[in-house]
């Protein structure tokens, strides 16, 4: 039997989410559903995209922001059903696929 991997890929396709296009270096805001006991609320997380890793349903996005003077990086599964919305706040033209030099930048919104 051939094409067994295609079967998995076709199945995974259904779990993929449709998001606006963004690239490393862009500033995005992700709204995540968080349940506190019985209540559910949306928790936004805004920051610069440091890297996109993985493929298919396993794709992860790493976002960095400065919270209370401390750099915080979150790595979030991009196709998680817990994500409500992704907004692209600002686009940047960045040459690197993994712009780690952004970690040395403190005023992220000011970068060209």
């Amino acid at each position: 039997m051939t094409g067994m991997d295609d079967l998995i890929r076709a199945l995974e396709e259904e779990q993929l989410r449709q998001w606006p296009e963004f690239k490393p270096g862009d500033i995005i805001r992700i709204y995540e559903r968080v349940s506190e006991g019985a209540r559910e609320r949306l928790q936004p997380f805004e920051g610069v995209v440091l890297k996109l890793s993985g493929s298919g349903t396993r794709q992860m996005v790493t976002i960095r922001r400065i919270a209370a003077g401390v750099g915080v990086e979150r790595t979030i599964p991009l196709h998680s059903p817990k994500l409500e919305k992704i907004e692209v706040i600002k686009r940047h033209r960045i040459r690197q696929a993994r712009p780690y030099w952004l970690r040395r930048i403190t005023r992220l919104h000011k970068i060209q």
Binding site: D5, L11, E12, Q15, T57, H79, S80, P81, K82
Partner: peptide, 11 residues
């Protein structure tokens, strides 16, 4: 067929 990652009902 093989193994993969799956999101269950609770995300």
């Amino acid at each position: 067929v093989g193994m993969t990652q799956w999101f269950d009902g609770e995300g």
